[in-house]
């Protein structure tokens, strides 16, 4: 099914079609390899009778929408208070060492994007690391080399 047809199905869930913008952008992002290039915004806009500029204004507001190409694997480390008290800084630094990139950037081969992010809602299981949105719990700096090895395999 085309992206446009899938969006049409999404919009039927809602009394007003504009409500389908978030799910439609999520869908378009998945279809476009994890980010929203300008053509993805045009597709969503067309399917929902909106303008691409409106869709960009929405996409740029929410952290989970990506407006730049991402690595094939996206690693996000929560660095909010509870994780930070449990050593999240060291976890980020360990990922930076293992991947050879700074937080907030993508490796040159396009394999990994590393980020430090706000509270992922797992404060009691600190440090929380999201790998492609799947949460790994109680991660410590010493676990990081093993995680990266596993993800590279």
């Amino acid at each position: 099914m085309s992206v446009g047809a899938q969006i049409q199905r999404l919009r039927k869930q809602y009394p007003e079609s504009t409500s389908a913008v978030l799910p439609a952008l999520r869908l378009a992002q998945e279809e476009h390899g994890g980010w929203l290039p300008p053509e993805a915004l045009r597709e969503v806009a067309e399917a929902l009778d909106l303008t691409p500029a409106h869709c960009l204004s929405i996409a740029s507001f929410y952290d989970q929408f990506r407006l730049e190409p991402m690595g094939r694997t996206v690693i996000e480390v929560c660095t909010n208070v509870s994780c930070a008290l449990s050593g999240a800084q060291q976890v980020v630094e360990a990922f930076e060492r293992e991947l050879g990139i700074d937080a907030g950037s993508t490796s040159e081969d396009g394999a990994f994007t590393l980020g430090s992010v706000e509270c992922l809602g797992g404060c009691g299981w600190a440090t929380v690391v999201a790998v492609d949105n799947r949460h790994r719990l109680r991660v410590q700096a010493a676990d990081v080399p093993g995680i990266v090895e596993e993800l590279r395999a």
Binding site: P37, P38, L56, S60, D63, L67, E68, P69, T79, A84, L85, A88, Q89, Q90, V92, E93, A103, G104, L114, G115, S116, V117, E118
Partner: peptide, 19 residues
Amino acid sequence: SLEGILAPSAMHESPAHGI
């Protein structure tokens, strides 16, 4: 225990969209 605290790295910079 918070030494080296890190701010979120994602800040919505986007050359692809001219942001």
